[in-house]
Design a protein around this nucleic acid. Sequence first.
DNA 1: CGATCCCGCCACATT
DNA 2: AATGTGGCGGGATCG
Length: 897
Amino acid sequence: ENIFDRSRMAPKTPIKNEPVDLSKQKGCTPERSPITPVKLADRPQPDPWTPTANLKMLVSAASPDMRDREKKKELFRPIENNEQSNTPDSLQYDMVDDNTVDEFEKQRPSRKQKSLGLLCQKFLARYPSYPLSTEKTTISLDEVASILGVERRRIYDIVNVLESLHLVSHVAKNQYCWHGRHNLNQTLKTLQEAGELQYGELMALFQHKEQDWEYKFGEQKKETIPESQDRPLLDFPEPDCTSASASSRKDKSLRIMSQKFVMLFLVSKTKIVTLDIAAKILIEETQDTADHSKFKTKVRRLYDIANVLTSLDLIKKVHVTEERGRKPAFKWIGPVDFPGKTDEPKGHSPMSNPLPGMQRGACAPYQIQATGKQRFTRHASFNVAQPCEGSRRKVSSEPSSPHQKRQACIVNSDEHCSKMINLAAVCRQKIAEDTRTCATETTLNPGKNPGTTSPLSFLPVPGDFDFCVNTLPQAVLPVVQAGVPSISLQNGVSSQTLHSSMPATSKTENGKPTLLPNQPFLCFPSSSLFMLCGDLQENNLRETPPTTEDVGNKSAEAPAAVLPAACQKHSSHKCASPSAPADDEEPAAKRQAMEQGDVPLSLVVPKKSFESPKAESTPGSGCTSAVHLEAFHLDLASPTAPLAADKDCTRPLDSQEQEKCPQNKDLDEPSPGKEHICKENASQPFLPQYIYVQPTAGLSSCNFLFPAKQAPSAISLTASQLPSLSVPCVMVPSAALASFPLVCSATIASPVSPVSDGSFTAAASMNFSMSSLASTTPVFVGTTAMVAPKVPPAPSVDHQQPTHSTLHLSPVLARSCTAVKLDSPVCMGHPVTLLKLQQPSSAPLTPKSIRPACHEAFFKTPGSLGDPLAWKKNEGTQTRNASSVQRRLEISSTSPD
DNA sequence: CGATCCCGCCACATT
DNA sequence: AATGTGGCGGGATCG
């Protein structure tokens, strides 16, 4: 045979392929064949063939080429479509030298035949997926290499990836132990958790970027300490490794890269990750500057990894079509839910050790990350509460203008920042693109759900990016923000473009009636508050300006210089919080989203939030906060842009922005408690701290909400305000005020209930959700009351109002509910508006309390007034309580505390 | 022409 | 120094 081969080969052209044959030939000469393949290849033959060849020879001595060939054939065939594979075989046997060319060609393995993926399949074919626990299969690199007829180097490529998933472990030189897929799910789970921590944030960054940014920045700069923390996210592995394992060398980057890559999938809502995004993320982490060459190299490596993962049936190649064109991407087709897995993203303590088996380097990156993340999340959850870092620091430090800070941060953090930025930018773009684009992929759905897709979960956050970016840059976003939530998101998304214009319009955009379509809201970012101007009209314009300001504020915290610190913190917190929450939530969201569709594109996340479900989901606990946030974001977005994506993205920003606002006083707090407008119900849930005032559409009046939120922590302002529950807020009723009550109308929603998202928007806006914030006090109640009076109009309301008043106290929910009721009947007026109003109303109430409860309860059943009462009670308590969040939750339930 | 990615040089680690 | 590992990127193929 050998001879034949030679003959064939020789005559023709020495093809690379040939080597194998040659080796075989060599094989003939046993001498050389040392077991370990030496580079010797040189040997006699001209062909340098690889040493492995010799080995192969030896190995295969028993079953020489034939096998290989056969194997190859077999393997290939299935794999490849071509017939060629066959031919070669035939050739072998039949062939004559003559066949030569054709045959050769045929024989010569086409590139595909030599692909790493194919090789990996062959490799895997040799071992049982689920080996008996008892038996241990050892893998000899040399042996395998020779058997498979490849260089050892290639085997390393495969083994490294397999090792990253713990399918094999390195036991000794040249020796690997085959574990099979028994622990695959566990490993994936671990990776997912770790990924959420790490990437969650990153992603978040991307998606939420702003938050993250600020978050990061803030922390880092502010505190150096944090740095390490931050790092975790990115670097995680190395550090640990280094210390721990002392991993030397660069080490196993392929292994680590593989894990990270897998994490991205697991964290991605859509389960689709485009190569470029992955590369960017990985590069980023890596640190360095990513130059083009690096990027290229990364991509190459990713292809290597992807080939192996594909062979494992964990991913498949797909294409995501974006505006720009189609981009290569991979979709996760492996297990998604891991039973035991904790769902909660946040909490995990992944650290423990994700990878059971890892021996070597396996330092799990996770750990580190985890840490950092956790923190984040927490923060996120409550701005106030946890603010720890950010706020505190900030406070102390300088709070001057937010902008400055940011910038400064940026500068300082610089790298991170820059990276972040870049990434964010990238993400955005992608997102935007994605959004727009549809996924074409075979697999994917073309669906494009707008929202959905982004490959990474990140996307959703887009807003963040912008935010961040903008901020840094300057911020411009604002406008969008003004647009309000929806807009903001969009902005964030910027790339998407979404709605940039939207701001005001956003509502319209949606088309969703709900919002008031045109109602413009004004949001005042002031700190806590938002002002919504409800005018239906478009006051937007006017509003806009403010918004802008807000925006600016956002970035900065402009408002009060004083507060600045606080603000900053807030901002940071907020950001963080939002993000964090987001992260946490995201997972869920993602999941959901994911579930929903594959959309390739990013963005998916938020949407859900809109829906009540989210709120529900979130509910609870601390998590909730996070969730809220997300929801929040979403909500915001939703209003305007129905598109989830957009919304999502933007949202965050908005909130942030809002926070900034200066206004106030309260504002500061505001920041903490962002108030969002939630158009949607969803928003309800979370909303942060701000209070909105919505005017009804028609109404000119504007309402203001002040955030109560955090009183405690928060800022002084709050305190003042809050002191009692309500406090701070001021409402301006005007007709508008009425609206608030109207807000209740939100109730309207009732019908819809929370739901409606689309529509909600308006409502949403109303929502504010301060609750989340914390605020504590819901406060508003008073407002409500106030309203009532004014509102007389709504007689119907009246009854409620009374309630309200009482209610007011109660947390948001109650309010909302109440309000709703009232409204509905009464208010009236603008139905649409009403919806919006509702929220507002709620908002007024108390942002804080509202939050959690709100979400769910609210929307869903506005009706139950009873609650309100309860609320009142609660409120009282609440007020006391600082922790808004909890309360809120409680509130919702009833009286929590 | 961009997407893939094979191939193997070469550096670093380990023995 | 030999050998094990594996980063890395040129450049060939593929589509």
